[in-house]
Amino acid sequence: MTAPAPRRGAPTPPGLLAAAGLVARKDLAIEFRSRSAFLSALVLSLLSLVIFYFAWDPTAVAAVDVAPGILWVTFTFSGLLGLHRSFGVEQQERAMDALLVAPISREAIFLGKASANLAFVLGVQLVALPALALFYNLPLTTVLGPLAIVMLLSAIGLTCIGTLFAGITSNTRMAELLLPVLALPFFVPIVLPAAQLTAKLLAGRPLEESLGWLRILLAFDLVFLYACTIAFPFTLED
């Protein structure tokens, strides 16, 4: 092969974070236009809360004991809806091919999609959390700050894992079934400390008492962020 020819006046492709930002902005613009995934996830969240509310016997279990489990079951399943959708838009007209031909790294595509999914999950949480407080009469205002930290850290872990597996399953015929089956076991290290921290906070305990769980959550966030970013390019191999 010949030596590379210099390309005069060639544009400079965006770096990792700039490219990720472009991909995230594009995904959010698509979701903002259709709102289909967000509304689906929101309705699923609210319906889950309503069903759990009617199934709950307040004389047997206190609200602060049952609420953390309900919260994380609801967020986990509603989040999956949006995660599946994030690669669905790339499959319709094989738009993913145009992304892959562009001179941006595969890692940037992952980080962009994960960022958009994070915004999606946080948006659902933002609406569903007050609904949970309303149904179960929870003292949310006193724990809002620490709870927001827990929800943000949990959302980061869930979206990293979810985005990776959404990418893996997007080319399969049973993507909607495979995504939860593959992703849910990996959600456990995130959901477990998140539920424990939520339970402590709703019981009126300070966050400092649960720093161990917080460290576990943070550690899994970092591990999943790094591992999923590195692994994602391999999921695109034909």
Binding site: R7, A10, P13, K26, R94, A102
Partner: peptide, 17 residues
């Protein structure tokens, strides 16, 4: 890849944009 332009029989476009 920066030097490549690809036209396919699929449009590779996002239909909501």
């Amino acid at each position: 890849r920066a030097r490549v332009g690809l036209i396919s029989h699929r449009t590779m476009l996002y239909d909501t944009l």
